[in-house]
Structures are given as C-alpha cells and as structure tokens.
C-alpha cells in the first residue's frame, strides 16, 4: 500500500479526524459472504429440509449409550464376595464418608437412613441384596440410586465396606429396622 498516493476524502473532517476511502479488504468480504452462505445452507438443512431436530438427535445418542450397557456380568453373592476381596478397603471407606455418611452416620449408626451396623435389614443383608439396593436406591423412602453416580468398581468397593459394617453395632445406633437376618 503506497500511502503517498492515498488521499483523505474531501469534506470528511471532524474535529481534525479525516477519513480514507479504502476498499473493503477482500479476505474480509470473503469471510462475510462465507458465513452468510453457510448460515443459509445450515438453516435450509435443519429447518426447511428434514435435518434431525434436537430431540431426534438425543434419542439416537441415548440409544447408542444404552446399547453399550447391555452384556454386563450377571452378579450373584459368590461373585460379589470374590470382588469384595479384590477391592480396596480404603476406597470403600472414603466413598462411604463422602456419599453415605450424611444419611447413615459416620459409623453407619443410622441417621436419616437406617442403622447399617445391626443385623436387621429392610432389603436384606446378603451381598447381592445390598448391592442392588445401593445401585437402584429406594427413591420413595429417600435412599438415592447410585448406579449412575458411582462406577461399577466404586459401587463394589462401597458395598464391600457396608457389608463389613454388618453386626459391628456402633454406639448410639438407631433402633433396628426391618427383619433380622437369619444367621447361617
């Protein structure tokens, strides 16, 4: 750009401010028209032609996620007990402190939720029964479901921790609820 040839516009002077009349930069115009054309096509695709709306897109991606879930291992008491052996007790303890102590008490003595240190259970004291109630919760009674909040390993770890609390009879525990577990 040779500035010597550039002359400010005649009659354009405001408080000493002058103006050139340079053309619009080409790349700038290209960007402007580019976004306009893209926008037009985008609108046509999604709002005039039958591009998917957000509900259809959501359904599709949820279905894809659902298909991942199938085929998880079928659990029973024995498998769970084996998994308990291999899971880290510290992890179970810290998850319990962070997620469960608020309702079941720091020692498991019971607070909003029932005492977990006695031998009475509303939903059963077997590994599988505990795992299921922790995963699925009892929404009406105020026990949240944890299956979407905890990974499989974390669920196992905290179930292992709670399973070990059974029969430890913490001090100041809430009175037992549910039915006594049959001693084997």
């Amino acid at each position: 750009m040779n500035q010597n040839q550039e002359k400010p516009m005649e009659g354009h002077e405001y408080d000493g401010i002058q103006e050139f009349d340079n053309p619009l930069p080409g790349w700038w115009l290209l960007t402007f028209f580019g976004t306009i054309i893209f926008s037009f096509l985008y609108y046509l695709h999604y709002e005039v032609a039958s591009g998917p709306n957000q509900e259809e897109q959501l359904k599709k991606s949820l279905a894809a996620i659902e298909s991942l879930k199938k085929g998880g291992p079928a659990l029973d008491d024995e498998k769970l007990l084996a998994l308990f052996q291999s899971s880290s007790p510290d992890k179970g303890k810290s998850i319990y402190a962070a997620k469960c102590a608020a309702c079941h008490g720091a020692q498991g003595e019971g607070l909003i939720g029932p005492n977990l240190t006695d031998t009475h259970f509303i939903h059963g004291g077997s590994p599988l029964a505990m795992y299921n109630v922790i995963s699925n919760g009892v929404l009406d009674k105020g026990m949240p479901p944890w299956k979407d909040q905890l990974s499989f390993d974390d669920s196992v770890a905290v179930t292992a921790f709670v399973y070990k609390l059974k029969g430890t009879f913490a001090a100041n525990g809430r009175p037992p609820q549910g039915t006594p577990e049959k001693t084997q």
């Binding site: 354009h12 408080d15 401010i17 002058q18 103006e19 050139f20 009349d21 340079n22 619009l24 930069p25």
Partner: peptide, 24 residues
C-alpha cells in the same frame, strides 16, 4: 473511532468499511 485517529493523528482507514460494518 474518536480516540484512535485522534491519538494516532492518522485518518481513519476506510469510510466504506465504517458504513458496511456499522449497518451489518
């Protein structure tokens, strides 16, 4: 648009660009 040309003591680059980008 006021202080830049005042401080630089240079004319504004493009009057045409002012019009187009203002209305856009």
């Amino acid at each position: 648009y006021y202080f830049m040309p005042k401080a630089a003591q240079r004319p504004v680059y493009s009057y045409r660009l002012s019009i187009v980008h203002f209305w856009a």
